[in-house]
Design a protein around this nucleic acid. Structure first.
Lengths: 179, 179
DNA sequence: TAGGCCATGTAAAAAGTTACATGATTTT
DNA sequence: AAAATCATGTAACTTTTTACATGGCCTA
């Protein structure tokens, strides 16, 4: 029985539904999974996850049952058929607009006027971040991975790895140019 | 006289201040400038720009004067010294976290399960978007550019062009693989 | 036994989007 | 004469962040 207005899914709702497709999880588990996977293009905080799970349940897109560990209350959520269907119809929608928000790039865009040492620092950090991201993406490809990636040769994963590597390279080159 | 709490700048405030560094502008002009430049990593809507300009003025970071065109009221904003200083100290802050939000990637991340024809469509659109973005960035490099780019050989612009080209290539390759 | 991890949540604030409303000026 | 562009704004809503609060379980 859909009670809440879920005619359109918020990005966070989509992350949640998408992760639950692979396995049932607790709110906490969803947070861990996003931190290890989607955080590179869409993060989520507890302040969104828990309320969103309740909204999704009210709309009949997920269902939950209690599964305590000793005295620790614990609620495991899983996708309903309606939820799976809703998610898949979102996937099928045309998406015309790719909106990207990248505060680091914003800073760099205006940063040409920065003192040299700050610029070098910024470039170094950015390079390190991309190296970490590349390593993480490669790790997902090798291990079972937090998202239980069905197909380790999947396009997206490859895109992720290659994009992060390209970036790590680019920033490393700039770093060398500057020094 | 700073009246509003501007101890920390919102991203939109930073875009505004950053653009005003090059030239005084109206709210409308700021919107045009973002649409042609920062929109690829940070967009802004009128609903943010006009109220933010008033907050910035209340805080003494920008100042404005009326400059009507005929009967059309028109208010031109420019940076104050305090605003310039504030912006430059933001540039100098260390930034540890690069948070990126990319809804298109989110979709693709989960999209492996998509019906083939939807996937192809998505890939095609994405390729086209990147080709457009690459063209636009190259255009900025050639023309004076809406942001009055001081140095057309600047790192960021080069980064933008090369990133968009890399992406256009990547998605084109995937498109061919799929067909 | 202490520190880290698992686990759930809320309240307030901040940030951003969307839809609406209005009208002059400039270009085709 | 029509269409595009310049120009300013608001109200309601949605989305996200941040800071707080609590406490059991596991392992070194």
């Amino acid at each position: 029985m859909p009670l809440a207005d879920m005619s359109s899914l918020s990005p966070t709702a989509r992350v949640i539904l998408g992760l639950l497709r692979f396995a049932p999880r607790t709110g906490y588990g969803i947070k861990q999974a996003t931190d290890r996977s989607t955080r590179f293009f869409w993060g989520a905080s507890y302040g969104q996850i828990y309320p969103e799970l309740r909204r999704l349940e009210a709309a009949g897109l997920v269902e939950s049952h209690e599964e305590p560990r000793g005295k620790v209350p614990r609620r495991v959520y899983r996708l309903t058929d309606a939820g799976r269907h809703k998610f898949e119809s979102w996937l099928s929608e045309p998406d015309d607009q790719y909106e990207v928000r990248d505060e680091g790039l914003l800073r760099l865009f205006f940063g040409e006027a920065m003192p040299r040492e700050h610029l070098e620092e910024l470039v170094r950090r950015r390079r390190e971040w991309y190296q970490g991201a590349a390593a993480l993406f490669r790790g997902i490809g090798e291990a079972i991975g937090p998202i239980e990636a069905e197909d380790p040769s999947g396009h997206v994963l490859r895109y992720g790895i290659e994009l992060m590597e390209w970036n790590a390279d680019w920033w490393e080159r700039l770093e060398r140019e500057l020094s």
